[in-house]
Design a protein around this nucleic acid. Structure first.
Lengths: 124, 124
DNA sequence: GTTGACCTTCACATCAATGTGAGCGCTCGA
DNA sequence: TCGAGCGCTCACATTGATGTGAAGGTCAAC
């Protein structure tokens, strides 16, 4: 599929799809005329990228973690140098902290909404 | 405490502390000479803000959710208009999606690291 | 009373993620 | 064969979160 179709399928502007490519997050083949050629797997990958971006993970980190996620059974970096591994560990820990922070705050919002709702139904 | 001390205590630049204030996220008292005066509660609040920012929540949303979190037992917006409540619900749902995305990817990284580690100990 | 370490505001700079548009090349259907 | 609609690159604009620095006020210590 070409960029317009992927854009439709992912709800992502063409501009951004090209940007992700520039950032090394996706690598479409090129058609003879220079057009980008995507396949179905790219739809999932773009969703992945956008989820991570929305969760505050910057592209330079996404670039690092994506290779580990395609095919969890495969080793994509069999000779990954220790500093890459420890960078991954750091990022994993950062993600854990984010999850905790988001969860805590989300639960507080939920409590708040529950309280407001309860009181509204009692008082109103 | 003044801005320098809060900066120390939170590991946040003075510039950013002023920025958060400008964004309506904290509201320090002013001393007679114009200096900002903070108290201990601001340390937690700044940590909260930074956690949310790191998790991809923009300041305009943080501004909205902070009032619900100070004192979960209190109703801070007893007359919150329905559109604020539904905005909060939306944000809660967005946070849930972020948590899911982060968790999924973090677990994949963990699996990856485990696999690399296992193989290293088998092969090496 | 001057020095130094704070504080203030204001303003311009940067970086990442995006938008927007110009100028041009394919390609397909009328 | 021409125009619409897609693609390409290049480049400048914007927004949000930050850095940095200038010009100046406050205050404590010496």
């Amino acid at each position: 599929m070409r960029i317009g179709e992927l854009s439709e399928a992912t709800g992502t502007s063409r501009r951004l799809l090209r940007y992700y490519e520039e950032q090394g997050l996706i690598a479409p083949r090129r058609d003879r005329n220079g057009y980008r050629e995507y396949d179905q797997a790219n739809v999932d990958r773009v969703a992945q990228i956008r989820g991570l971006l929305a969760a505050g993970v910057p592209t330079r980190i996404i670039r690092r973690i994506l290779p580990c996620l395609d095919n969890p059974r495969d080793i994509h970096l069999p000779d990954a140098p220790p500093e890459v591994l420890s960078a991954l560990e750091d990022e994993r820990d950062r993600m854990t902290r984010r999850v905790e922070c988001l969860t805590r705050n989300r639960d507080a919002i939920t409590d708040y909404l529950d309280t407001v709702c309860t009181r509204a139904s009692v008082n109103g």
